[in-house]
Design a protein around this nucleic acid. Structure first.
Lengths: 158, 158
DNA sequence: AGCTTGAGTTTAATTATTAAACCCAGCAGG
DNA sequence: CCTGCTGGGTTTAATAATTAAACTCAAGCT
């Protein structure tokens, strides 16, 4: 079960995140969760993912604490389960947003995006912004530089 | 070659982006590109990815216009090729950043992140911020709501 | 008693991924 | 001008992941 080890550079946080959400379908399942879909059948139908795969993906998402399995009972039905985002899962939102923004910009259709995410309070469209702690906004990758942090490890002496 | 179609909900921009960068290793290869690694051997060694897979991933990244293959010649060596991020590729940065931030917060080691990304001009640490066009900052997924955009399509009449 | 439905499992066939071996061009040394 | 080395890949065979389709199972409805 060392899924993590398949993505080397094992102390890289991006690699660790991908070990949890980087398998095929996982981020799309989470997208559905953000859109409010909570039930196996609904997710399966809208995504078209294989049923057994959806079952195992949901299980690992629950295992990693991104979704929670909640029992519910609809009138005239037996008890069933739905999957709700946890706080930990909700914090994945910027990843989805970054994927959407890039897709809209570079792979979008003529007629515009199928979904617009709005600020609930004011209705204005939201977007991701790269900022620095000193208050500069609107940065791009070119304005940044990676530096070793406190947890940096020396490369493996081959 | 309908990679795209494997990720249903075919007009979803997140799904389209994942069709390009969502295969195993692709985002880690791009991470290396952002760290300045450009050569096959270097990427292969630091990532530990299978060589044939790295070759095909680099080829699809070039095909999609995220990397460019540039010839170069080191003194005493024959011509070789390196892979450089294009503008299109550079714009993937928020995706990597979002993955890193989540990993740092939820899967990080005691001793802190191995890498800190700084604003080149002022040295302050950078971060992603969800903002709205009306100027509100520091939003979370809970402050947002998705709405159908101009390109929305009705669900398939099953 | 038999049919339906949501939520999964199981099974068998198809793809992806891996490790390891191989290839190739040119340069350097002898 | 023969040999070995290096960067940058292919090929091959074995292993693992993904798929579609069929099956299960427990209520509840008719």
């Amino acid at each position: 079960m060392l899924e993590r080890s398949r993505y080397a550079s094992d102390n890289c946080p991006a690699a660790r995140t991908l070990a949890v959400v980087g398998e095929r379908w996982t981020l799309l399942i989470l997208r559905e969760a953000f859109y409010g879909q909570r039930r196996f059948e609904d997710i399966q139908r809208t995504l078209g993912v294989a049923r057994n795969l959806l079952a195992t993906r949901l299980a690992t998402l629950v295992e990693h604490g991104l979704l929670e399995r909640h029992p519910y009972r609809e009138a005239g039905s037996r008890e069933r389960f739905e999957y709700r985002l946890t706080e930990r899962g909700i914090e994945l939102f910027p990843i989805l947003l970054a994927l959407m923004e890039w897709g809209d910009r570079h792979l979008g259709d003529e007629d515009g995006p199928p979904v617009i995410v709005e600020h609930r309070d004011c209705g204005a469209e939201i977007q991701l912004d790269i900022t620095c702690e000193a208050g500069h906004t609107g940065l791009t990758a070119r304005d940044t530089i990676p530096r070793p942090g406190p947890g940096a490890r020396l490369a493996d002496p081959a």
